[in-house]
Amino acid sequence: MPRLSYAAPASVPDAIKLLAGAEGLAKVLSGGTDLLVQLRSGRTRPELIVDTKKIPGIIGIRETEDGFVIGAATSGAEIGENAALVAAYPGVVEGTNLIGSTQVQGRASLAGNLCNASPAADSVPALIAAGAVAVVVGPNGQRNVPVGQIVIAPGRTSLAKGEFILEFHLPKPKAKQSDAYLRFIPRTEMDIAVVGCGVNLTLDANGVITAACIVLGAVAPTQVVVEAAAKAIIGTKLDDAALAALDAAARAACNPITDKRGTIEFRTKIAGVLARRAAKIAYDRAGAR
C-alpha cells in the first residue's frame, strides 16, 4: 500500500532538508486548500507532505521602508484585514480575497495560489502587475524571483527540488500609483476565473498615466503581461480612445483554449472588457491618492 508521510518542520533548513531528501514526490503544504482537494481526488499522490506553517515568520505581514513583506503561508483573511496593505495594494488584496469561500480564505495562501500554477489563479495577475518578488529558499540558498517567473506551465513552476517560497516582497507604492483586479465568473463567488485581469497604474500630477502593467489570467498557459496594453495607455488620461486601444491590445494578447469554463471567443472578448474596467478602477484609485 502507498504510504504518505507528514512533517511540520520548525525551521527553514529542516524544511529544505526534508523536501530535498524525499525520494518520491514531496509537496509543500501551506493552507492546503488546493493540495488536500487534489490528494483526496487522487490527482496528486505525494509520499511526503511538508507543512511549512510552523516556520517562524512564514505567516504574517510586515511593513518595511521598502514596502511590504508577506509571509508565504499568510491566509487570505489575514491579508484582507491588513489595513495598510489594503490601502497600498487594493488590487492584490481583492484578487487574493476572491479565492474560494470565507472558510477557504481562512487558510488559502499566496504561495499556495501561485505554486498551484493555474493560469486562472486569482492572486497572481495583480501580484505580477505590482512587481512582487518571491523569496525562494532551497538547498542552494536563497534567491529572489519575480512572481511572473515562478509559473512556467499549467501545474508547473520554476522551483527546483527542495525549494519553496518563504515570503513575498511588494515595493512601496509611488504617489499616484494604485491597482485593481477583476475576474469573470458565471456566478458571484466560489468559482474559477474564466478570465482575470490585474492592472497597476502610476499617474503624474495631471492624471496622465506614466507607468502601467496589465496582466491577464486564464487566457494562455500562464499569466500574460500585456506590454502592448501598457503602451496603449501610457501617456493618456485613459480616454475612450486609450480604452479602446487597451481593449484591442488585451484581446490580441490572448491565446486561450476552449474548455468547460469558456470558449476562445468568449475569453478573448471578456479579456478586453475586463482590462478596460480594471484599468478604470485602478486609474480612479491612483488619482484619488
Binding site: R187, K260, R261
Partner: peptide, 29 residues
C-alpha cells in the same frame, strides 16, 4: 435556467463532474 449543464468530452465522458464546474447557484447569486 442560468448555468447548470452536463458537459461531455469527445469520448463521451462527463467533463464537469463536480460542484466547481457544475454550477448550482450560490447564496450570493
Amino acid at each position: 435556467a442560468l448555468n447548470e449543464e452536463y458537459l461531455y468530452d469527445k469520448n463521451g465522458r462527463m467533463d464537469n463532474a463536480g460542484f466547481l464546474d457544475y454550477r448550482v447557484p450560490v447564496a450570493s447569486d
